[in-house]
Amino acid sequence: MDTLMAIIYAVLVLGLLGAILGLVLAVASKLFEVKKNPLLEPISNVLPGANCGGCGYAGCSAFAQAVIDGTADPGGCVVGGEDCAAKIAEILGIEVKKNMRIAAFVNCSGGNNAKKKFQYIGIKDCHAAMRISGGPTECAYGCIGLGSCVNACPFGAISLVNGVAFVDHERCTGCLKCVNTCPKHVIHPVPYYADVNVACSSHEKGAVLRKICNIGCIGCKICEKTCQYDAIHVIDNLASIDYEKCTGCGECALKCPRHLIVDSKLDRSPVVSESTAVSN
């Protein structure tokens, strides 16, 4: 009987303790209640919840708050894309602005096509390689190809192909972690639906560039002459596309003698030069 009494006694005391604490918490939750916008939760629910920071806010809930405050556009979530933007707009009862989905693109196709200054043996990290006279590639603008961006990508969208970083367009969510990581600033944000992109960043003159890279832009202006829409221009020896004007006809990609303008309608695979690699 004593044991039974002890058990009942213990249960009673602890149960009472639990009940009192529960009551205190219940009172406290009313007392310390922080008023939240009732829209915050439904908006947070439609967001991906990856807290990647691609929108420029601290996390998904911070972005949701910014959308409610009107400081951020519902389409600002790069991971969620159009579906997410449409859902948020529906909750808020507003219109989505122009679709701004972006993707990362590596403006370089050098890699094994580019000449090396020296053979780099060390930590497999582009930032480390950069410290040794600006990296092993002869081209001052090109991809080092040690894969700092591959490690930075939270979505596994980047791989090294032929010695140069390559972004898998399907997997890229546009969080731009790679853009911020790349020490050569060779990865750039481009509109997700851009059909043509220039896979080179070099501002070297054509004659110089021919000696150090088999594939880089030589600034021949053939693309500029080909384009009927005034959308591609050679600025400082490098072709650059005005995405506002580009219709994606793909003529420049066909005419480019170096085959470095990538037409995504035809092929999104990495650029591979037909000629053999420059001997190192």
Binding site: V24, L25, A28, S29, L31, F32, E33, V34
Partner: peptide, 9 residues
């Protein structure tokens, strides 16, 4: 839990 609520406020 209590401290968390208190801090939030």
């Amino acid at each position: 839990q209590f401290v968390e609520m208190f801090l939030q406020k």
